[in-house]
Design a protein around this nucleic acid. Structure first.
Lengths: 226, 226
DNA sequence: GAGAAAATAGCACGAACGTTCGATAATAAC
DNA sequence: GTTATTATCGAACGTTCGTGCTATTTTCTC
């Protein structure tokens, strides 16, 4: 009873890596089995259908995202520092050695975003929850005074996601090493725009916006996780 | 000699629609042939290999993007209006009835961004040229005085692309009708950020001879039907 | 250690795929 | 109108895929 769970765990580890390169659709049972040194039918018995394997692989990737990106970011101080930590980890996520072909979730989204079914449901649900969690973090930043009170949390979450998406795109397709830097500047511009001082708005400053609004974690030491 | 080109044209029209739903990889010859009321082998003879069909389909999608999005935007006045027209058309592109499953190019990018070969090359090359073309449009906007002189054109192109990407994502996966509005607000914020300071520097360049609206269309300069 | 239960292997199936080939029908050239 | 060329078809091949069935080996329980 316990040996099965172990191999199932190993299988999903390889499955995430393989799905990263070939997509959830291209994740085929034969090559996955031979990578693990086991038979096709032996592997198949763990899931009962390919779709179940795909769902389990997707859930595993989502779980790893939460453990690698989201939860550690929650350890950062409330408000902007937390958002900054989230952003940094999110960018690094696509370079995870366990994801040789980029983010599995984004890849699966491109494949299943117009094919109704449990996979699409799982993707949409997770995306919805993530976006809401980011929006909550933005609300906290507003409460902390890092952003102005008229800040729209969902709008912020949308724009943050947009930056991550484009960075992932440029790194994967164009292999552009400048992508990360560009993403960073876009993030700073985003943060600067919503900063409480309205004078920031619509102005053009050559240098990076000063980290006035609690960018350093030591400024707000003491206030911690909710 | 001419009948063949006509059917080839018809085939690629359907191929783009099918690839929009199932991806370039999922574009299979059998179903495509039966959609067109012709035999598998008859269709196959036009391309000689599946990869050639995929490449031709991709080139056709790129050509349609240029005709539908980019070239018409060039007809708008230089500078910010042109960028705005580009942005609007770009957003509408994903809702094109000929693309029932979203942008073929973005879909293909997700599939082939880490698989070396002619398809990836075509994608990366086109993306590079598009990004450069947008950057040139931004340079013009700077010259027109619509943006401040320290505006980084490539950074702007990156951020503009990010907005479009996220809008496409939210519309496809989340079926979120608010996506377009959010993208619009992100665009306005982008434009506002790079706007010149209130201290009017005026429109510096009166009349540098414009390249004209219907200038060049070498965006996706790929050889077509060989 | 014996027996029950679970995990894995081996094999075969039907379907779908890209591709080939020879035959036939449609079109273009003269 | 005849002929040469091109376009299309139908059938088949070799693979690969997901899946089901039956043994056999491994693991857990008492």
């Amino acid at each position: 009873m316990r040996k099965g769970e172990q191999t199932r765990h190993d299988i999903l580890g390889e499955a995430v890596a393989l799905a990263s390169e070939l997509g959830l659709e291209g994740l085929s049972i034969g090559p996955l089995a031979s990578r693990l040194g086991m038979s096709k039918s032996g592997l198949f018995a763990h899931f009962g259908s390919k779709e179940e394997l795909q769902l389990a692989t997707l859930r595993r990737a989502q779980q790893r995202f939460e453990e690698t990106v989201f939860r550690p970011a929650l350890a950062a101080p409330r408000g902007l520092p937390r958002l900054r930590a989230l952003f940094e980890r999110w960018l690094a996520w696509a370079d995870d050695p366990g994801l040789p072909g980029g983010c599995v979730i984004l890849g699966a989204t491109a494949e299943y975003d117009d094919r109704p079914g449990p996979i699409r449901d799982a993707l949409a649900g997770a995306q919805h929850r993530l976006r809401e969690a980011v929006a909550r973090a933005v609300e906290i930043a507003v409460a902390e005074g890092h952003f102005g009170p008229e800040t729209d949390p969902e709008q912020f979450a949308f724009e943050l996601f947009a930056i991550v998406l484009a960075a992932h795109h440029d790194r994967r397709l164009l292999a552009d090493p400048a992508a990360r830097n560009r993403a960073g500047r876009a993030f700073e511009r985003l943060v600067a725009y919503y900063a409480p001082r309205a004078s920031m708005r619509g102005t053009v400053t050559g240098d990076r916006p000063s980290a006035g609004a609690g960018a350093r974690s030591d400024l707000f030491a003491g206030k911690d996780a909710p």
